[in-house]
C-alpha cells in the first residue's frame, strides 16, 4: 500500500521542490543574464541570453549607484555595528548566563521584550534627537542604532554558548588568580568563538541589508550606503535596465558568496532561537 502511494507522491514531491527551487532562483538568474544585456535586449526578451559578457553595464551602474562612496560607508556602518554588537552582547551574555548580579531576571526579560520591539516605537523621537545632536548621516551614530536593534538577539544567541561552558571553568580561572574580565577574555571568549562568528555574520548581513533605519538616518549624498545608492538609481535608470540589473548584481553577489561560504553558521544562528535543541 505504502509503496503504491509513495510511488505516486514521489514525483509530485519532486515537482514541488523543483518548482520551489525555480521560484527562488529565477529572479536571481534574470539579474545575472540581464546584467550583461543592453536595455533594448532586456525589453525585447528578458529571458534571452546575453550576446556578450561586456562590463559596460557594470561601469554605468557603479557610477550611477555612487558605489565608490557607498561601499566605504556600508563597510564602515556594518563593520562598526558588528564590533559594537559583539563587544556589548558577549559581555552581557556572560553576565546574564552566570546570574551573579542582582536583577538578572529583570534584565533578561527586558532584553527578551526588546527582541520583538518594533522599530517604529522609538524611531520618530530618535530621529529628531539625532537631528538636534547633528549626527544624522553619521555612520557611527547610525551604527549605534543598528547595534541596539541587533543586541537582544545577539545576547540570547551568545548566552546559549556561555551556558554550555561549565561554571567550574570560571571557578578554575578564579583559583588561577584571574579577574572576571580575564576569565572572560582568556576562557569564555575563545570558547564561544563559533557563537561570535554566527552573530557577526547575522549582524553584518542585517546591517548591510537594513532599510528603514539606514534610509531614515543616512541622509545626504556623502552618507549613502550600497542599498541606498542602488535605490537612487530606481527612477533615473528605468530606461537602462541593463545597468539596473548590473547594479543589483553588484549588490547581491558579495552577499550570496558570503552566505554560501558561511551558511553553516548562518543557519545555526537563525534557527537557534526558534528551535529547542
Amino acid at each position: 500500500m505504502r509503496s503504491a502511494s509513495s510511488a505516486l507522491s514521489r514525483p509530485l514531491a519532486n515537482a514541488f521542490l523543483a518548482g520551489a527551487v525555480l521560484v527562488a532562483l529565477l529572479p536571481l538568474l534574470l539579474v545575472v543574464i540581464n546584467a550583461f544585456k543592453p536595455h533594448a535586449a532586456v525589453v525585447a526578451n528578458p529571458l534571452s541570453l546575453p550576446a556578450s559578457l561586456g562590463p559596460d553595464n557594470f561601469v554605468r551602474a557603479w557610477s550611477g549607484g555612487k558605489f565608490s562612496i557607498a561601499i566605504v560607508n556600508s563597510l564602515l556602518l556594518s563593520g562598526t555595528t558588528v564590533m559594537v554588537t559583539l563587544a556589548c552582547a558577549s559581555l552581557a551574555a556572560f553576565a546574564l548566563a552566570r546570574r551573579k548580579i542582582a536583577g538578572w531576571q529583570f534584565i533578561t526579560v527586558y532584553f527578551l521584550c526588546a527582541t520583538t520591539v518594533p522599530i517604529q516605537l522609538f524611531l520618530f523621537p530618535l530621529y529628531f534627537i539625532y537631528a538636534k545632536l547633528g549626527i544624522l548621516g553619521n555612520f557611527a551614530g547610525t551604527a549605534l542604532i543598528l547595534s541596539a536593534i541587533n543586541l537582544p538577539i545577539s545576547i540570547f544567541l551568545l548566552r546559549a554558548y556561555v551556558l554550555s561552558i561549565p561554571q567550574e571553568l570560571d571557578d578554575a580561572a578564579f583559583m588561577d588568580g584571574a579577574t572576571p574580565f580575564q576569565t572572560f577574555r582568556h576562557v569564555i571568549l575563545p570558547l564561544m568563538r563559533p557563537g561570535l562568528i554566527t552573530v557577526a555574520i547575522i549582524v553584518f548581513l542585517n546591517s548591510w541589508n537594513e532599510f528603514l533605519i539606514t534610509s531614515t538616518f543616512q541622509k545626504g549624498r556623502d552618507n549613502i550606503t550600497m542599498t541606498l545608492g542602488y535605490l537612487s538609481m530606481n527612477g533615473t535608470y528605468a530606461t537602462d535596465q541593463g545597468a539596473l540589473m548590473a547594479g543589483a548584481f553588484i549588490l547581491i553577489a558579495p552577499v550570496i558568496v558570503l552566505f554560501l561560504v558561511l551558511q553553516r553558521f548562518f543557519i545555526s544562528g537563525m534557527t537557534a532561537g526558534a528551535v529547542k535543541g
Binding site: 567550574e168 571553568l169 578554575a172 578564579f174 583559583m175 588561577d176 576562557v187
Partner: peptide, 29 residues
Amino acid sequence: LPIERGVAMVFQSYALYPHMTVEDNIGFG
C-alpha cells in the same frame, strides 16, 4: 581571594580549559 590564600584546587570535572594545550592549562595561573 583564592590566590592570596595559597591554596590550589583540583575540580571534580577537572575544569581544564578545552581550548588550551596541556602546557597552557598548567601555566595559566
